[in-house]
Each structure stands twice: as C-alpha cells, then as structure tokens.
Amino acid sequence: MTTNPKKNNSGPISVKNADERLPIKISEKSGVIFNRCYHCRSCTNGCPFLKAMDYYPNEVIRLLQLGQTEEVLNCSTIWTCVGCNTCSYVCPMAIDIPALMDSLRQSAIAEGIISEPDVLNFHNEVLDSIERHGRTHKLEIMLRYKVKTRDWFGDLDVGLKMMAKRKLDLSPSRVTDLKRIRRLFSQNRMEQRHE
C-alpha cells in the first residue's frame, strides 16, 4: 500500500524556475482555463479525499500557474482524484478540476512519472478487461490487480464474502462484436505511437 512520502498539506510551496511548456500543453489539451482560479479553496474545502493527497486541489492549480512542472507531475493528488466532481460543481469560476487532473495524469504517464503505481495498475486492468470482453469483468480485474501489486491476502475476506453472495461472477458478461472493440483499442495504440 502506498503512503504519501511528500506529504505537504498546507506548507508553503517553494517556487523553482518556472517552465511554461506543461501549463500551455495542459490548457490546450484539456481546454480548462486554470488561470481563472483565485484560490478561494471551495474545491479543497469540499474534497473528501484530502487525507490521501500531498497537494490540495487548489494547490495543484497553483503549481500549474507557477509553472512548477516537476512538482505537479510528481504529486499524488493527480492519482488520488477520482473525478467525483464535488469540486467542480462548487467552483465559482467553473473550472473543470477533474478534467485538469485527467490531463495532468495522462501527461505524467507520457513522461513515465507514476507516483501512485497501484492506481495506474487498477485503471490498466479495467481497460484490459474491456479490451478482452467489451465489458468489465470484476473478478478478473481484482485477481489480476492482486497479482500485479503482489498483495495476495489483502481483501481476501471481502472477496470471499462477495463470492458467497454471488456478487462476483466467474465468467464475464461479453460483447458479441469483440472484433470491433479490439480494433478500437489497436487503433488507439497506433494513434498514441504517432503522437
């Protein structure tokens, strides 16, 4: 299980040399105008996941405004955010914070900076499952995730309870036109290679 080695939580942000390339790329890709943020902290006040974040949501935006590329791509917040929209719903400047987090996370992946590998492992397992069946197969996702993270016994009790209640199906619910699904994935991989 990961902890947050860089736990910052409301300490001052020390500014290093600004690099504007990432902020420009993020605003182009996500379409989010994060310079609107004036740090009222409505997002941070409402976020249910602060305890698992090294930088608060508005601080991530601050890092971007200050061009602190390395710091922002390495932070745990961009992985912990689940995109529940609690923040963006109350943002007085209508900043789509989850879309910003998505875009930052995808930039971090492109740079090979994965500060919360378990989160990425989980997302990858979900997408792989969709590629295989066209739908998510929860038992398979859980098992493969456990293998990847080498966490063999964590949640064994939960898994067994779910099996007993027949909540985890042994075989997947599948799409018939799997060819089409797999073509979507292979096209996507080609496009990503070209980028």
Binding site: R105, L120, R135, T136
Partner: peptide, 14 residues
C-alpha cells in the same frame, strides 16, 4: 459495451 467507466477517462481520453 462498457461506457468506459472511471478508468478510460482517467488514463486515456480518446
């Protein structure tokens, strides 16, 4: 088929 769930938009926008 799956709508993409949380995982698709999290790591692969397209």
């Amino acid at each position: 088929s799956c709508c993409g769930s949380s995982s698709a938009h999290s790591i692969n926008r397209d």
